[in-house]
Design a protein around this nucleic acid. Structure first.
Lengths: 168, 168
DNA sequence: TCAAACTTTCAATACTTATTGAAAGTTTCT
DNA sequence: AGAAACTTTCAATAAGTATTGAAAGTTTGA
């Protein structure tokens, strides 16, 4: 496979994966492009390579910066802004996990806690089922969340060492 | 909070969470309803409670059965079909993880392997960056996938014991 | 202060995905 | 075989998301 073909395939696949996991396809593709590009590039470059509009490119870059996946670069004597992505896979995973934890897991946990408090008649099957389901999900989510929190605080070496040595 | 209000909130939140993670909102809501319902219920019941059409209900139930989250129940002397959901949080998480691994992670891993094979000039920065990014993502994905695979095979007790005791 | 160079915004529009509902299909009973 | 009871399909449509592009905004240097 040619390098150029491989790059296109990667960008396409990354976009698809993103959309399957609730991340805007364009956002994933711009990210992929920046991952594969050695130096920082301009909005113009991105528009051209991915065939997307200026507006879309601008908003997507803003989102990516919001996720901490992309940074701006100013160059002395130049008016244009340049963008580049962090290329370390572990740091990328960390940022994405952190962002989704904050935006999605934390709110649902808050609700699950409230729902766990709901009182009712222990003899009522509706109540018993509600409690069983909510408590089970709540407990599991809390544990997953705790694990995620620990990983987010941890550094790369700890992660590769402690976690993956469990799995052969 | 009242039980009925709590149930509605749970269904709504579950639907939202689902859609944020690329799972059809209705599918997540039907699943939530079944989780909260002690006994098996009919298509008609679901249509009524969630205000959705017969067609939508039917297709959603089919999907849920495809994910192994819901089962059909036949009752002697009855023509109608009844549906119910597995209520154990761990089993649910397992099924969802298994399904997404198969549909989404396995294909991307296959591609990453192919992309890792691409040869090029080690002095070309484009090639070097491509290699670094793809290899990093590939390695991380492989490890996560391996971990997931082990967990899927493992039983509940192993999971709660071995994994979560790492995190305080 | 002006205007060129560049960035940001957002209403309009295109695209994607979900949903409806009625017709077609199936099963079961008499 | 016929018809009632129920399920499935799928073309049409609605709803939800993403994208465009041109106008407005900003910054910089002469």
């Amino acid at each position: 496979m040619e390098l150029q073909e491989a790059k296109l395939k990667f960008i396409e696949a990354w976009g698809k994966l993103g959309s399957e996991w609730g991340i805007n396809r364009t956002m994933a593709q711009v990210h992929a492009l920046l991952l594969l590009t050695p130096d920082a590039i301009t909005t113009e470059d991105i528009m051209e390579k991915l065939n997307i509009s200026r507006g879309n490119t601008n908003m997507t870059l803003r989102d990516l910066m919001g996720w901490g996946l992309v940074e701006k670069q100013h160059r002395a004597g130049e008016r244009k802004e340049y963008f580049f992505a962090e290329k370390d896979a572990w740091l990328i995973a960390r940022q994405v996990a952190q962002e989704r934890k904050k935006r999605e897991i934390d709110p649902i946990l808050k609700l699950l806690n409230e729902l766990s408090e709901v009182k009712g008649d222990e003899k009522d099957p509706e109540y018993k089922t509600f409690k069983t389901s909510v408590n089970g999900i709540s407990k599991l989510t809390k544990n997953v969340n705790k694990a995620l929190g620990t990983m987010l605080k941890a550094d790369e070496n700890w992660f590769w060492g402690s976690i993956f040595k469990i799995f052969k």
